[in-house]
Structure formats: C-alpha cells, structure tokens
C-alpha cells in the first residue's frame, strides 16, 4: 500500500468531532482541566485510532460471519444455482463436497464471464450485449453444472482471522465474500462485505 493510500485511510477514520464538542465536554467536567481544547482533541483522535486498531484486531471471522450458508455441490445444475442466488437474494454461494470442504465459489461474476461467446466482466455488459444482439446469452450455460463455471481454488479464511486480515483479503483479491473454514478446512460460515459494514462504526 502506498503512503498516499495509507494517509487516505487515516483521514477516513478521523473521528467526527468538532472543537465545540470538545469545549462543551470540558465544560461538563467540573474543575479546571490543565489542557487546551486543541490538545485534548489531538489526544482524542489518537485514542480513537487506537480503539479502531484494537477492535479491528479483536473482532474475528467467527464473530462476523453468517453461519447459515447456502451451499451447492459441484454437480448442481447452473439453473438451480441461479435459482438459489435469486430466491435468497445473495450474490455468491460456495461449492462444497460431502465433507463440507470448500471446492470453489460461484458468484454473479462467474455467470457473467461464462455467458455468451466473449468474456463479460459485469452484469451490465451482459445486458448490453443482450440488447444489441436480441438474444439471450444464458443459453450457452443452460446445461452446465456448478463445477464448469466455479472459481477454484477458492480463497478462504480461518475462523480465527481478524477483521483486519479479512478486509485485507477482500480488498487485495477484489472479492465480495470469503468462506470461513475451521482447522479441518470445513466450511463454518461466510463473511461478506455486508457483514463488515454491519459491524462498522
């Protein structure tokens, strides 16, 4: 990460606190406080950053993850996969074997990139192609199974992974969700970007 990005991240986490907030807080404490409002604000900003660091280091995958995970098998037909995604309003689903081991993952992106005769990167690209060609590209994957389009090998995190480690994994790999596995490598949950937003401050 470059220094500029690091600085942006810092400013993002600056506490939303004004000089008058500090001044009013100081007035609420009886007695003379031997510190200027400016210094107090600076102390507060540093303490806030330490608190964020501590929380990011103490929240673990098992605290954040969704435990009831929809899963599919490698031979699940894609029309069923699409149905699972649609009816549960989710955008990705892990592919597991009989021992709950994660074989791969299928997301909307995987559908997009296997539809039609060229590789689309987004749903909008597929829609644009459909409109221009007046046909449905979904026909090309109609008879295929999960294993034909799943992303594999799949990136997973251990249930002990910290919030910081998870956000790094999501950001570095540009993915929206990551399956959580236990020490035996078995699926125990899934952490999505939405889960992280939910615990954010």
């Amino acid at each position: 990460m470059s220094q500029g990005e690091e600085k942006d991240k810092r400013s993002l986490f600056r506490p939303e606190i004004s000089d008058s907030d500090i001044y009013e807080a100081m007035k609420e404490i009886p007695g003379y406080l031997d510190i200027t409002p400016g210094d107090l604000k600076e102390v507060y900003s540093h303490a806030y950053r330490h608190a964020l660091d501590r929380i990011a280091g103490s929240l673990r995958a098992r605290d954040l993850m969704t435990r009831t995970v929809y899963t599919i098998r490698r031979d699940t037909p894609l029309r069923d996969v699409a149905g699972i995604l649609a009816s549960n309003e989710i955008s990705g689903v892990p592919v597991i074997d009989a021992d709950m081991r994660v074989l791969g993952i299928i997301s909307e992106k995987d559908f997009c990139s296997h539809m039609g005769d060229r590789t689309a990167k987004s749903l909008m690209e597929v829609i644009a192609d459909c409109i221009n060609n007046q046909c449905c590209f979904a026909m090309t994957i109609r008879e295929k199974n999960a294993e034909d389009i799943m992303t594999t090998p799949v990136i997973t995190v251990h249930e002990d992974a910290t919030l910081r480690q998870i956000t790094t994994v999501l950001a570095k790999n540009n993915i929206n969700r990551v399956p959580v596995v236990d020490s035996q490598g078995c699926l125990v949950g899934i952490v999505s970007r939405a889960d992280i937003v939910r615990v954010s401050f």
Partner: peptide, 13 residues
C-alpha cells in the same frame, strides 16, 4: 496559536 482558551470554571470551583 491554534486553539482557544479553556472554559471558565464554575463559581463553586
């Protein structure tokens, strides 16, 4: 300077 004088203390103080 960058900041203001701290608030005045109460009468009881």
């Amino acid at each position: 300077g960058v900041t203001s004088t701290p608030p005045r203390v109460s009468l009881s103080e």
